[in-house]
Amino acid sequence: MSERINIQKTYKLYIGGKFPRTESGRYIKWADKKNSTVVNICRGSRKDFRNAMVSARGAVSGWSSRTAYNRAQILYRVGEMLEGRRDQFMAELTLQGLSKKQAEKEINQSIDRLIYYAGWADKFQQIFSRVNPVSLPYFNFTSTEATGVVAAIAPDDSSLLGLVSIIAPVIAGGNSIVIMASESFPLCSISFGEVLYTSDVPGGVINILTGYRSELIDHFSSHMDVNAIIYCGDNEDDKKLVEMNAALNVKHVIQFPVQDWAKDQHQSPYHILKCQETKTTWHPIGV
């Protein structure tokens, strides 16, 4: 009996709800530690990022104007879909070097984190909004509003949980995101795109690129249509570059050090608040 030939997966980008190859036609060879599996990962380019930004900008007003309840359900749905694809992620996480036990924990926590933020999507505004007692005959209230388009450099060491921990609060708050996946462990980031694809997240709300940080970080942080930039990591030069570039259009800068994303303290409504603006409205009270 002849051996069946495997169908190997092509890892592509996730932009605007589609899975294009990089427009540059370039690739990165990624191999597991034993060099037994070798795949080609898209080496995302400046133009891929630009295209993703166009998608993200196009999607943000629709996404932010959906009801909070609807966003909550969609986030929950992402959790459901991830639950259903455990095997695929087990395979990829173990290929990326985790033990089975570690991989299982990472998947469980990623799902739980999605559910955690699904639960916040229709509540955080209640926590962070208020009526202000001004000393004039005016009704004055403050509410949160999505910042807009967020560009993010995902944690490099935590390929799934790190990615999910960045994406979930950003989109729970009504933003859209373009995120650069872990450079060292990119496999399940792309698979996560497939989860998103099947989970009612509108195309363009979440866009995932793979490639070299060193190549894209400058573009991520300098793009004039980015409203907030998230950087995860400890590289001082990168951090400084991001902060310098943020000055170009006064982006919000949010930074997370290398940290154990499994800890509960790394999930919080305050993470949602980081990509929210504060809007205060005044109106006279009279007849």
Binding site: V134, Y138, N140, T142, K279, W282, H283
Partner: peptide, 14 residues
């Protein structure tokens, strides 16, 4: 800051 039917109002609580 949005001033609806007013403009340039300020308050420490706002």
């Amino acid at each position: 800051v949005i001033w609806a039917n007013t403009f340039n109002k300020f308050d420490p609580a706002s």
